[in-house]
Design a protein around this nucleic acid. Structure first.
Lengths: 323, 323
DNA sequence: TTGTAAGCGTTATCAC
DNA sequence: GTGATAACGCTTACAA
């Protein structure tokens, strides 16, 4: 591994000059510049980021905290984030919190040890103080932590509204909302949007809480069985929706003839299964892009316009709804 | 951020002593040790890994190259790998190659710049030489790159065999294999296992290549339509299987009554959809564990027993097969 | 048992 | 324009 010294020696200049060349900073004569470039090429020199980071106290690494990797929504988000991150010439250190506070705390220490430049939080932590004490820029996805920590989320209220409106438009009279854990902000917002439409129209509805990672098939079946007159179901994830459709089948109900179903996330599979799932699509592309771009601004100490941004969602009309 | 100097000052000792204490290396008096620990606690000191890494020329970071993040198999693998990685006190830098050589090459440079200690390759690269020239330990998953690069894979031949045997046992007479790209080793092995069983029994069969990431629904439909007498289908992924089942429905075929289907991967959804999918399960847990453990051994310059390891797969018997 | 000091590969501040 | 050199925070001979 060639170092800056090797390059300096080969080019017959000082390390300072080489440094100026590679950083394009300060004056340096065109011809010596050429010399340096040649030496760099010859030695296949690449500057050592660790040394750089040590001096500059920043590492061009950003930390990402996610609750898990195997849910399609998070995976897609991560994919977008990674892509934009490398475009900004940063790298990504991934922390899978597994929704576990201790793992998160441990990782926060790691972040410190590596002089991480910023963090993207997609986690459900409550210990926001721990993050703030790190004193590095943070952006939250899907969680409005506090007023002063920037965040970006889907417009979940809109999602709830769109779903409710669609079911109403297609003639539903009794609607169930199989939602995620109601402690989560996105879930709360979806519920608000959902109820806002239905209550105005005095349409009977209720919400039932499920775990996102492992929605209880049993609970779903029970709720379905004891509400056989229900004709519309809004689910907070496509996975939940698939479980629900399964339960409806077991209960002898046809989709969408007897019961109409709307999911959330627009996962790849929602258009492969049959009947194809009507669902609400979140723009992971926009969320991820905004998150990274904003974080980069924060890391550069540039001002940001808005602290809390919401990204529109769209209803994807497919076969589990009638109209 | 407290440094080792601050600790030294507070504990009235030299930095060397502090270093000895935190690294548990060399002699240090019990009572001074206590003093140091107190100072560390008081200042909430954590050693800076960048400085450490710079000196030791190793960073406790391992690089992971994956083709993409949104396929369930890779996500699961990544989840396991992350888990074991942190247990070994390493961190993970993720490179999503997007099956793109240039991205991969760019990341290799990044790996160099950060003195990455080892890499786990789940990618389809052909430029193994680029990796070797990095001169750091590598382990490949799902790809036997060359004889001297350790690898771990599922026993894909076994997978092909199990699937073929199952279909035969359940009475199939004409079997199609919707496989992945036949340039991939796992795909080749599955084909070998699959054919070994069928050819011995002289059962008609053929293989059709598809893309894993975006299997062409159209191609599948065409093949299905022009082989209406086929009664058994083995798919190289559950996603392909779902597509196939969809196409069979369009063609008026019932699963499993008319055509029996077996998938691969045992993704979460395979037991949610209806009929529940019979499939071959790969043990991502074992693969990931072996990969990381072996890489750690290599990084510690410990010997490893076997260079190429295969992990057994299992047939998960569900509803898309008749017996 | 402890401290001094060199060095890891950079960048940035000075002189020249 | 360019070159010494201190500094970033740490580890490890080597002395004491």
């Amino acid at each position: 591994m060639a170092t800056i010294k090797d390059v300096a020696k080969l080019a017959h200049v000082s390390v300072a000059t080489v440094s100026r060349v590679i950083n394009k900073k300060g004056y340096v004569n065109e011809t010596t510049k050429e010399l340096v470039y040649e030496a760099i090429k010859e030695l296949q020199y690449v500057p050592n980021e660790l040394a750089r980071s040590l001096f500059k106290k920043q590492s061009r690494i950003i930390g990402i905290i996610v609750p898990h990797l195997t849910s399609y929504y998070f995976a897609e988000l991560l994919e977008v984030i990674e892509d934009i991150t490398v475009k900004h010439n940063y790298r990504m250190m991934v922390c899978n919190s597994q929704d576990n506070k201790e793992r998160e705390t441990k990782y926060l220490q790691v972040f410190q040890q590596y002089n991480i430049d910023g963090v993207i939080m997609i986690s459900n932590t409550t210990r926001i103080q721990d993050y703030k004490s790190l004193n590095i820029p943070i952006i939250a996805i899907d969680h409005k932590l506090t007023e002063d920590v920037p965040s970006v989320t889907s417009n979940n209220t809109m999602g709830g509204r769109l779903a409710a409106q669609k079911l109403v438009d297609c003639g539903c009279k009794k609607i169930i909302h199989f939602r995620g854990p109601s402690v989560l902000l996105p879930v709360q917002d979806r519920t608000i949007g959902f109820k806002s439409v239905l209550e105005k129209l005095k349409i009977y509805n209720f919400s039932f809480d499920l775990d996102f990672k492992n929605p209880s098939q049993e609970d779903i079946q029970n709720v379905v069985n004891s509400n056989l007159d229900c004709d519309g179901i809004f689910c907070d994830s496509d996975i939940i929706a698939l479980n629900v459709i399964q339960s409806l089948k077991s209960a002898g109900k046809r989709v969408p003839e007897d019961v109409q179903v709307i999911g959330f996330d627009n996962i790849e599979l929602s258009r492969i299964i049959s009947p194809k799932l009507t669902t609400i699509s979140q723009s992971t592309a926009k969320i991820g892009q905004y998150a990274v771009d904003t974080l980069v601004k924060l890391m550069n100490k540039e001002p940001i316009e808005k602290f809390h941004v919401q990204i529109d969602v769209t209803l994807i009309d497919r076969e589990t709804t009638k109209c």
